[in-house]
């Protein structure tokens, strides 16, 4: 119980004092996770919608693979990215290992299947409702893709938030490809893992509270925005 009390005190103190070490870690965490979410959304939203709308050979296999990859083990993804980016790997020449870019790549690979698979489901459900009307108005599936992504925007915001949740909570992959280097690749989750391994449980818990606060704030802001728009455009 002492650890919990100490953790809350420390968390409050770090946030109030704008601890420079902590703000650097928070900044990098947000930079990595939001970049990965942005890239995964740009890729996953149209990919999921396309799989929902178009009929082509191998479509069912893609659906199964996307669904299965929603549960990709982060350490496996981390290991694969590590092997690809290491000096002897195919992309070793770019020197990306142990950089924030490597962490973004790993998180991108982890959350793109989540965003694509959930988008496919949202768009497929919407297509059931809209198909006849859109075809009657003259829309091809290619044209309908943008329409359905727009009309499904409220559900898709939740899909993107699910991706962000996975990215911000992820530790295994970024630890492997980032290396948890202080002031370079140390993020919230890897800091927590480090403090636990050092036996500094109160500080680890405090960092956990800060991480939860951040995540809740972002999700809360997205929810409020969603509700405001929904009220104006059901």
């Amino acid at each position: 119980m002492n650890d919990f009390g100490e953790a809350f005190r420390l968390a409050g103190q770090m946030l109030i004092e704008f601890d420079p070490g902590l703000t650097g870690i928070i900044g990098l965490s947000l930079q990595v996770s939001l970049s990965a979410v942005l890239l995964a959304s740009i890729t996953g939203l149209p990919l999921g919608a396309a799989v929902a709308l178009f009929r082509f050979p191998g479509r069912k296999i893609i659906i199964v693979v996307l669904n299965a990859f929603m549960g990709l083990p982060p350490v496996v993804v981390g290991l694969i990215v590590y092997l690809i980016l290491s000096r002897s790997g195919p992309l070793g020449v770019f020197g990306l290992l142990f950089t924030p870019t490597a962490m973004i790549i790993a998180q991108f690979l982890l959350i793109t299947p989540i965003i694509a698979a959930l988008t496919r489901q949202v768009v497929a459900d919407l297509w059931l409702e809209y198909e006849e009307q859109l075809r009657s108005l003259g829309a091809t599936p290619a044209r309908a893709l943008g329409t359905l992504l727009w009309d499904g925007r409220y559900s898709l915001t939740t899909v993107i938030l699910a991706g962000f949740g996975r990215a911000s909570a992820e530790v295994g992959a970024v630890m492997i490809v980032g290396g948890n280097i202080d002031h370079v690749t140390r993020v919230m989750t890897t800091s927590i893992a480090l403090e636990v391994s050092k036996g500094n449980l109160a500080l680890a818990l405090a960092l956990g509270i800060v991480l939860l606060t951040l995540s809740t704030t972002i999700n809360g802001a997205a929810f409020l925005l969603q509700e405001k728009n929904r009220a104006h455009n059901t």
């Binding site: 809209y130 009307q133 108005l137 003259g138 009309d151 925007r153 059901t234």
Partner: peptide, 15 residues
């Protein structure tokens, strides 16, 4: 584009 249809249950886009 020269014929159109209105359905029994109209589908309104979210706009």
């Amino acid at each position: 584009s020269k014929h159109a249809m209105v359905f029994q249950r109209p589908v309104m886009l979210r706009r």
